[in-house]
Design a protein around this nucleic acid. Structure first.
Lengths: 329, 329
DNA sequence: ACGGTTCACTGAAACGGTTCACTGAAACGT
DNA sequence: ACGTTTCAGTGAACCGTTTCAGTGAACCGT
């Protein structure tokens, strides 16, 4: 087991400058002491290679400068892209992100959310698996929370970037109906048992309105697992798919290819998200685009403002756009 | 600003059980006290909703139970997959990962690596941007480090999962030569200025041996940026590409499609990594496969052992496999 | 000369755990 | 009856900061 090398503490800096630890602490944060002293302390600290211990700092001050990011399921390529984008945007704001993956499991979501709070993150961005969980209200009591995707029921969030799923679903299903599809398999991500999740409600409402015959099935976002599900649905005679995540649609591509079925001649697929790879497939995946960069920017702006103590709450609604590429025959 | 709700401390549990804080601390970790007391303390703690504060615990004990994961560049889809896989595998070991993204920048890599050490992660998995940096030797002094991809020069790592890049490069370049390509553009990720990075050395050696005419260019892994580079190379007359990451190869697909060039008829592309999406493209991307699951398992096994105090150092060499899918004409 | 500010800095108490060295009692062997 | 172990549990120092409530000196206007 390696030996932790001994590091300089604030007391040593205090000794070396002839000041009290308190003054050094203030000086290093540029408060309450004379310019001259600040300069001197900085110099001595640099000489000694002193850097404040983030753990001790967190314990004493309750602040860390970190932003927590709790993703619903990182198996999803789009969510991966979102996480990476948020991480980089936060970096540009001199913040840094703690990225955690709830793996689509509400109970893990609970555990990790609490863990982040206990880690003293200054604020939290969450892409909820179960937006109706009481957890969120509890969490909002103790730190600013920004949600992406869905509104958190009954919680005082510090901001929300929500998708207009009603419009998105309408766009998708009308497009499929216009192309002559009536019997549609809807593949949605595995998720909380909440039966009345907003997006699902819209699907039911719209299919009823448009007179469609749907079968809803949950599917994991990992390619291999999504392919399994798609394979089963193809075997069951389904030939038109509305996938609630591009990652799931990729599974339909894979399963169709295996069985020699051609898209869009034999099988029709719609995605939901627009991951960069969707444009590279042939045919390109027709999908519903949510402007991922806009979401990243909005979420980061909200969370940084909240972490800085800004209390103005905002709700930003993202409008969807149909990205037609030819996967619906 | 939300008010942190007051939480139970160990002293309150001590009061409630009539024990000393020390005993409670031991009891909750199942040490040094009688079974009966352990049971009682557990019960009372649960009643009070007590849970040990991880920050205070980290300060006092220097341990956190977390494993740090420092990725070279999360723009790369393969590295994203690796990070997600490692996160999930660690979860199965009841550990949890702190995922950070060096964004391909050696100086950020330094900062983040030190930050992880200061966060008291029990161990670190790193996919180095600059494997020759003196940083690693320093880091290995204070915590177990497992590296993925390259060996860390002069550092006493706790384990390594390295790729046999010599074999991988040979596999790729021989394949291209066998298909009749002589003039090849090599697209490598942006990286440290280290000119003698092992993989690059192999490329030069092999091209010389095989009598190839190469031009080496660095390219970012983000699709849009990689496409830009590919576009320029196509404009420069290049028609055969060896990309040192599948993500970069995707950029060649995109740029070729834009210009109406067909793969493999007009343009040939080889990747390096084998991301799941590579099999979905048409034609599938011919690439060098590194068995990502094996890497994940090996790295996690090594790092968990090291975090548990096991000092046996191991070096695992991954052998490449050519995954031929038709993108090389 | 005097009360009142301002300024630069300090002492000590947090923050919430862990761990070391120790204690008193019971159990043990002889 | 005695010295030795073992056991369950304790007191207090410690981890490395931050922050609150002062303190003494210099400076102010009158």
């Amino acid at each position: 087991m390696p030996q932790p090398r001994k590091r300089a503490t604030i007391r040593e800096v205090a000794k070396a400058t002839g000041l009290s630890p308190a003054s050094v602490s203030y000086a290093l944060r540029g408060m309450q002491v004379s310019e001259e002293t600040i300069e001197r302390v900085r110099r001595v600290a640099a000489e000694l290679g002193y850097e404040a211990d983030p753990i001790a700092r967190a314990l004493a001050s309750g602040r860390t400068g970190m932003i927590g990011l709790l993703c619903g399921s990182l198996e999803d390529l789009w969510q991966q892209a979102l996480a990476v984008g948020i991480g980089r945007a936060l970096k540009d704001n001199d913040r840094y992100a703690l990225i955690l993956d709830a793996t689509g499991d509400p109970s893990r979501e609970r555990t990790l959310a609490r863990q982040l709070r206990d880690q003293r993150v200054d604020a939290l961005i969450v892409q909820p698996v179960d937006p109706a969980a009481p957890l969120w209200a509890e969490l909002c009591e103790s730190l600013p929370v920004v949600s992406i995707g869905d509104s958190l029921a009954g919680a005082r969030t510090a901001g929300e970037v929500v998708f207009d799923n009603r419009a998105g679903v309408t766009l998708a299903l009308e497009h499929m109906r216009d192309r002559g599809h009536r019997r549609i398999a809807v593949l949605t991500p595995t998720r909380a048992s909440t039966p009345d999740r907003p997006a699902d409600v819209h699907v039911l409402a719209e299919t009823a309105r448009l007179g469609l015959d749907i079968e809803v099935v949950t599917a994991p976002q990992a390619l291999a697992a999504a392919t399994d599900v798609a394979r089963r649905m193809l075997a069951g005679g389904h030939r038109a798919f509305f996938c609630f995540a591009d990652s799931i649609a990729y599974g339909v591509y894979a399963a169709s290819a295996e069985q020699g079925l051609r898209i869009p001649a034999d099988v029709s697929v719609m995605g939901y998200d627009d991951h960069p790879m969707s444009g590279l497939l042939s045919p390109g995946l027709t999908t519903v685009d949510w402007d991922i960069d806009g979401i990243v920017r909005a979420a980061v702006r909200l969370v940084v403002a909240a972490a800085d103590g800004n209390t103005r709450r905002r709700r930003i609604v993202q409008a969807p756009e149909l990205r037609e590429r030819g996967s619906v025959g």
